[in-house]
C-alpha cells in the first residue's frame, strides 16, 4: 500500500503526468470532432442504412453510434496511458533513481508490483475523465441530431466498461514493456511504433498476404495486441469471428508475460 502511494506521489511530483494529460486532451478533442462528423453522417442517413456484413466496419445501429461517442478518444488514450506506464519504469533508470528505489525496497518485485497498480490507477483516471467528458458532450451531440442519449442501452454501458478494461490492460502492458526495455527512448519509440503499426499496418499486411499460407493465417490477426484490443472494445469483425472475450484474454496474456519476464530480469540484474 505504502509503495503504491509512493509511486503515485512520484508521478504527481513531476510534470510528466500533466504533459501527457494535456496531449491526451488535445487528441481527445480532435477525435471528438471526427466522431461528431461521423455521427452526423450516420444519423442523417438514419437507421435505414444497410449494414454490410462482409466488411462490417460500421454497424450503424444508433446505440452503436452512441457507444462510439462515449468511448471517444480511446485510440490515443490507450497510447498515452501505455507510454506513461512505460515511463513510470524507464524514468527510474533514466533519472538514475533506481538505486534509491531498490535501496529502499530490496525486494524488487514489490517495486514493480506497486508500479503496475499505480499505472492501472492512472489509466483508469484517464478513462474516467474522458468518459465523463464523453457522456456530457456525446449526449449533447446526439441531442443536436434529435437522437436520445441511449443511457438505457446495455450495449452503451458495456462499451464504456470494456473501454475501462482496455485502459487498465494497456497500462499493465506499458509497465511490462518498460521493465523489458529500460531505455526511455527505446521503450517509448518501440511501443508507439508497435501500437500505431499494429492498428493501421497489420490490417493492410494481412489483407495483402491473404490466406496464401492457409486459411488459419488471417486468424492470427487477433494476436496483434491493438487488434485484440479493438476486438475487446468494439467487437471488430476479424476473420474467424473470434469472441470478444478472446481479445481480453490475449491482452491479459501479453500484459502478464511482459510483466513477469520483466520482473524476473529486474530481480536478477545488477543495479549500477
Amino acid at each position: 500500500m505504502r509503495l503504491i502511494r509512493a509511486e503515485l506521489l512520484k508521478l504527481r511530483t513531476t510534470s510528466t503526468w500533466w504533459i501527457f494529460a494535456l496531449v491526451f486532451l488535445a487528441l481527445w478533442a480532435l477525435t471528438l470532432a471526427v466522431n461528431w462528423f461521423a455521427t452526423s453522417v450516420g444519423l442523417d442517413a438514419g437507421s435505414s442504412i444497410e449494414v454490410d456484413p462482409a466488411t462490417g466496419d460500421f454497424v450503424l445501429h444508433e446505440s452503436d453510434i452512441a457507444a462510439n461517442l462515449y468511448t471517444n478518444g480511446q485510440f490515443f488514450g490507450l497510447l498515452v496511458v501505455m507510454l506513461l506506464a512505460a515511463i513510470v519504469v524507464t524514468s527510474e533508470y533514466f533519472q538514475q533513481t533506481a538505486t534509491t528505489a531498490f535501496l529502499q525496497t530490496p525486494r524488487r518485485e514489490l517495486v514493480v508490483g506497486a508500479k503496475l497498480v499505480a499505472a492501472v490507477l492512472v489509466g483508469l483516471a484517464f478513462w474516467l475523465v474522458s468518459t465523463l467528458l464523453n457522456l456530457v458532450l456525446g449526449a449533447l451531440i446526439l441531442a443536436a441530431y434529435d437522437s436520445g442519449p441511449f443511457f438505457g442501452s446495455g450495449a452503451v454501458w458495456e462499451a464504456i466498461l470494456l473501454n475501462a478494461l482496455a485502459y487498465a490492460l494497456w497500462a499493465v502492458f506499458g509497465v511490462g514493456a518498460g521493465v523489458l526495455i529500460r531505455s526511455q527512448i527505446g521503450a517509448t519509440v518501440t511501443l508507439s511504433v508497435v501500437y500505431v503499426l499494429g492498428y493501421l499496418g497489420s490490417n493492410t499486411f494481412f489483407l495483402l498476404i491473404g490466406d496464401s499460407f492457409g486459411e488459419w493465417f488471417p486468424k492470427l490477426q487477433v494476436l496483434i495486441p491493438p487488434l485484440a484490443s479493438q476486438l475487446l472494445v468494439s467487437g471488430a469483425s476479424l476473420p474467424g469471428s473470434p469472441p470478444r472475450w478472446l481479445g481480453a484474454v490475449i491482452l491479459v496474456l501479453y500484459a502478464v508475460l511482459a510483466g513477469a519476464v520483466g520482473t524476473v530480469i529486474t530481480r536478477k540484474r545488477d543495479i549500477t
Binding site: 505504502r2 506521489l9 511530483t13 513531476t14 510534470s15 510528466t16 524514468s91 533519472q95 533513481t97 529502499q104
Partner: peptide, 17 residues
C-alpha cells in the same frame, strides 16, 4: 534524484514508501 522533482518531494516519496 529525478531532475524535475523538488528536494522536498524527493524525500516525501521516500518517506511515504
Amino acid at each position: 534524484a529525478h531532475k524535475g522533482r523538488t528536494g522536498r518531494n524527493h524525500l516525501r516519496v521516500m518517506a511515504t514508501a
